Simulated scan of single mutants.
Amino acid sequence: MRILVVGAGALGGYFGGRLAQAGRDVTFLVRPRRAELLSRNGLSILSPHGDFHLAQPRIVTADGLNDAFDLVLLSCKAYDLDDAMDAFAAGVGPHTAILPMLNGMSHIDALAARFGANTCLGGLCQISAGLDGEGRIHHFNDLHALVFGELDGAATARMAAISAALGEAGFDAQPCEKIRQEMWEKWIFIAALAGITCVMRAAVGDIVAAGGGDLALALFDENAAIAAANGFSPRPQMVERFKAILTAQGSPIKASMLRDIEANHLIEGEHIFGDLLRRAPGEAPLLRIAHLHSKAYEAQRARVSA
């Protein structure tokens, strides 16, 4: 199976690098600057599960992409989705499957509109990773799972082929018959974690110490009610797990969105908060505050850089 990994940042670089390490046929679609860095330094992963260095990763830029792949692993940020689709479009053929690793759900509609409803799988990843100043990928925890499945839950021949290609490749590849449920559950948790840590500008443990744990739970409950209204009520064991994370005393956890704000980077506020708010059956005041906070940050960032 020929696999095109769109991006070689923390997520695409990690999962694509592990696939290459396992001998899979992997090509990374990257921008010219990243291509130059990878050509010079190779692809490096530093991980609790073992370090890996690929001296000469197979790379391509958009202008050099001219044939179809069997599987596209999409690891871009939501705000880069339109540009990413333009970049990898030449790699999509009649039998290509696209496996996105984005949070939320609106990207599914965008991919279906561009490439056809049957092209896209559902997917999510469970990992904490980032790039350092030299472009190396640092994996920060023990989790490195890629969950994927047909959006309608069907057991198809392509799912079997993709499962075989991703399996035993140095990370946890998890085929899933209820991928929409999994995606919704992750979405409402991410929206709660990002919402509370960004608005408070603090890690979970600091918010709990300040007496704000109840607000984190209330925000999660709002999000869970939206999921339920859309037919994806979170499972009780997931609710218990997520609420424990959001109220853990002394926890250093904060959303990656907060790290992006602290670094003055673009954020996925509209994709995480705005789209969820649009699906709400009624008022969701705490989620609205989180959404407005993200929009205010973006407005300030645009004003200062103008």
Rank of each mutant, 00 (worst) to 15 (best):
M1P: 05
V6R: 12
L11F: 11
V26N: 07
V26K: 12
V30R: 08
R31Q: 12
P32Q: 13
R34D: 02
R40Y: 12
G42Q: 13
L43V: 04
A55G: 05
Q56I: 09
Q56G: 06
Q56M: 07
P57D: 09
D63T: 07
G64H: 14
L65R: 09
N66Q: 08
A78G: 12
A78E: 06
M85E: 00
D86P: 04
A89K: 10
V92R: 01
A97E: 14
N103Y: 11
S106Q: 15
I108L: 15
F115I: 03
L121W: 15
L124T: 10
C125N: 06
I127W: 03
S128R: 09
G133P: 04
E134P: 03
H138S: 06
F140Y: 09
G153C: 12
A157F: 00
M159S: 00
S163D: 01
A164H: 11
E168F: 06
F171V: 06
D172T: 06
A173G: 02
Q181E: 01
I188S: 11
F189M: 05
A191S: 15
C198Y: 04
C198S: 13
R201T: 03
D206L: 00
V208D: 02
A209S: 14
G211A: 09
G213L: 06
A216I: 08
L219V: 05
I226Y: 13
A227V: 11
G231E: 15
F232R: 07
R235A: 02
E240L: 10
T247N: 11
A248T: 00
S251P: 08
K254C: 01
A255R: 02
A255I: 00
I261C: 12
E262F: 10
L266S: 12
I267T: 01
H271G: 02
I272P: 05
D275K: 15
L276S: 12
A280H: 08
A284Y: 04
L286W: 11
R288F: 02
A290S: 15
H293M: 02
S294C: 03
A299R: 01
R301P: 00
A302N: 15
A302C: 09
R303L: 14
